[in-house]
């Protein structure tokens, strides 16, 4: 069990502030409203779970926070710098220097080994850790020279986490990181995420439709139909090992 990261909101450092975010996709003739006015503040060191059914808009929100996508309307800023209206170069630099992504399907480059997948990021980040150190953080020192095809799903996701944290990001954004994994393997991955969160102090945002995972968060934000439907704080963060689904 762990104490919540920060209790006094006055001492918390604001990382993201989003106001009135909307996002409308066009799929052929149909307009899809993925986000319908989201206001949100996220703080340094927090472990936040965005909970919602599929189609609730959580991936869209994550993509906008990570500078992968732009909202149709509304504003986002990161540490006081506006992301909305930023050009591609600025967003690229933002992602390169500050954001680590973890995807549901790991998205490792199949032609690169585990270490090289991590090096892909460390080569361009300003103050990275060594790829080996990042892999050690997820307990994969022994599998460094394996290709994607030689790794299990859980191992692949841990490589993806090592890849995301190797740049020492301020923000770790995880899109259904355990979505494709069984419960036991999922726990290993969550443990890795928690450790990173505690050791590096990176704001960690995990989106999931799995309510069990919400128990390990400082804060749980419910998304439904493109809106924030509710928010709660866990007085105590559950350890991943306590989680089962």
């Amino acid at each position: 069990m762990h104490a919540p990261a920060h209790t006094a909101s006055g001492s918390r450092e604001l990382v993201f502030r989003a106001a009135g975010l909307t996002k409308v996709y066009r799929m052929g003739d149909v307009e899809v409203h993925a986000l319908r006015g989201v206001d949100l503040e996220l703080y340094a060191g927090e472990f936040v779970v965005l909970l919602g059914a599929s189609g609730s808009g959580k991936s869209t929100l994550l993509n906008i926070l990570g500078g992968l996508d732009a909202p149709t309307d509304g504003r986002v800023e990161c540490r006081g710098h506006p992301l909305t209206g930023a050009g591609d170069d600025e967003l690229t630099r933002f992602r390169r220097e500050h954001v680590g992504f973890v995807f549901q399907f790991y998205n490792l480059i199949p032609s690169l080994t585990a270490r090289e997948n991590v090096a892909l990021v460390t080569e361009i980040a300003p103050q990275p850790m060594a790829p080996e150190a990042a892999l050690a953080l997820v307990d994969l020192t022994g599998r460094m020279n394996h290709f994607r095809a030689q790794l299990s799903g859980g191992e692949q996701q841990r490589v993806a986490i090592a890849r995301a944290i190797a740049k020492r990001p301020d923000v770790l954004l995880c899109d259904e990181p355990t979505g494709a994994l069984d419960s036991a393997t999922g726990v290993l991955v969550l443990e890795a995420l928690e450790r990173i969160n505690l050791e590096t102090g990176a704001l960690t945002v995990v989106i999931t439709h799995n309510a069990v995972i919400a128990r390990m968060a400082d804060r749980v934000i419910h998304l439904s139909d493109g809106r924030i439907a509710g928010e709660e704080r866990n007085p105590v963060r559950a350890a991943p090992a306590e989680l089962h689904w």
Partner: peptide, 16 residues
């Protein structure tokens, strides 16, 4: 497509 997306997500620029 996905590899391109990953590269971009991790901060590789359009030019790279």
């Amino acid at each position: 497509r996905e590899q391109i997306a990953v590269l971009k997500a991790f901060g590789y620029s359009r030019w790279e």
